[in-house]
Design a protein around this nucleic acid. Sequence first.
DNA 1: GTGAAAGCGCTAACAG
DNA 2: CTGTTAGCGCTTTCAC
Lengths: 330, 330
Amino acid sequence: MATIKQVASKAGVSVSTVSRYITHKGYVSAEAEVKIKKAIQDLNYSPNISAQSLKSKKSNLVGLLLPDISNPFFPMLAKGVEEFLREKGYQLILGNVNEDREIIKSYLQFLVQSNAAGVITTVDFKEEFPEFDLPAVTVDRVGKKSEFGVFADNSQGGFLAAKAVVEAGAQHIAVVRGPLTTDNTNERFSSSITYLNQADVNYQVFQSMSYDFSEIQAEAEELLKGKERFDTIILPSDVHAVAYMQEIHRLNKHIPEDIQLIGYDDILMSKYVSPALSTIHQPAYEMGHEAAQLIYKLANNQSIDQKQIKLKVFYVERGSTRKIKENENE
Amino acid sequence: MATIKQVASKAGVSVSTVSRYITHKGYVSAEAEVKIKKAIQDLNYSPNISAQSLKSKKSNLVGLLLPDISNPFFPMLAKGVEEFLREKGYQLILGNVNEDREIIKSYLQFLVQSNAAGVITTVDFKEEFPEFDLPAVTVDRVGKKSEFGVFADNSQGGFLAAKAVVEAGAQHIAVVRGPLTTDNTNERFSSSITYLNQADVNYQVFQSMSYDFSEIQAEAEELLKGKERFDTIILPSDVHAVAYMQEIHRLNKHIPEDIQLIGYDDILMSKYVSPALSTIHQPAYEMGHEAAQLIYKLANNQSIDQKQIKLKVFYVERGSTRKIKENENE
DNA sequence: GTGAAAGCGCTAACAG
DNA sequence: CTGTTAGCGCTTTCAC
């Protein structure tokens, strides 16, 4: 690796001139510029990032801490973050944190130690780890106390899901609540419940404990073998819905005739399972993109008009819900 | 951020003693140790990574450059890399490079400038960008010239796929070749062809140009509306297979009765589409894990017994291929 | 065992 | 417009 010193001597100028050239700060004569350009070329020089960052106390690293990158919802979000950041010249540090506080902590530690420009997390850590002082925006699972957040309209989503199944004739509904009691799940859930309460239907609530496929399947088995016969299940995620779907198939029941299903997220897979999954679409890519933009503004002291960005969701009707309103008994 | 100097003065020792304590190199008396420990605690000190890396000319960053993180095969691989690296105290820099040479180049640039410990890529760049001198291991799409590589047994995979469909009674086969003419796709392909040649079947070859879902669907439409009637299609990936599946459904044909399908990769989704997709299982997580381990050894000058690691693949029979041997005419 | 001091590569006053 | 210089925070001889 060539250094700025070598470039300077090769170009016959001082290091500060080279530095000025590189950082585009201060004046550099045309002749000097030519010589420097050539020297850089010849030496295949590029500035040492550690040295730059040591000096400037800044780096262009941005962390993205995700609960589980193999959950299909998150890669899309990551892509949104990555593409925005790359254009702005930032680098993404990806962390797969499994909800594990220690892992989260060690990533935050690293980011702080690296003078990172900021971090995008799925869970607000400011309360738990106030010692890590770096620009942060929460995505998806945005809580009341998060200062900066990007999330989808959960209350609208919960409402739409409940409305969709009720209008499709649901009478006896199982509402499966998401595994985390994070604000986003809570909101969706209570919004669904509010709708259900005012509608003329029966429902019962179940609590899921996991986003892991096989664990969800076990829960599904449990729910389905209970004495209650449901004609509709509202699920907290598409991963849940697909797992339930499998289980329902295994019992030789028909979707949506015997049981209708509605998911949440609209992951890629949902379109291709059979029947295709009706669900609430969340703009994962956009969430990532917006979050990255917020971090960017934060890191560059740009004015922020909206600290909390709420994105729209919408209902996607596919094959797992019934098309027309109809009454059925159990 | 506290500095080592502050810790030193607070502990009443010199910076070098603190440094020795931190790096576990050289002697530190028990008393000094206690005082330093306390000072670090009080000041919530952690070493500045830029300074460390400037001095040591090393960093614990490892790049992982992936073609498309929203392609479900890669997140599993990424997870394998991430989990190994995290345990060893390295940080993952994730790049979503879209096969774009410029993006790849800029990531490599960054990694070199950061004294990164190494990079794991899906495509060997040594030939195209020899100027980037850092430990590299190629995963998945490992070519002949890659020095360090982790890949699945493509030739075995291609063979297994062809064998599976032939044994299930294939007579008229469309072999869709993967979009990249990378060594892995080539190997699979020619291995399938070799098998097909010695079997008593007809086949025809098609070339796919994309991993993008909707583009594949267009290709599928093209292939299926041709005058040739195939009873079997061998696809280069599960994403391809799922896209074809959709298209076949749309034409109201039955899988596997009218057409049988075999994919490649065994992504999560394959189990849950309908019918479930028969495919060749590739150990994505393990590939990532092994690649990370190689990088780790490389970065730490450990002896490497195997520069090229070939992982096993196996056939997963599910619903998209016929169970028993049977003859059919078009 | 410990501290003083040099220096990693870069930037930013500052003087010219 | 340019060069000299100090110093970012850390590690590492080398004397003591």
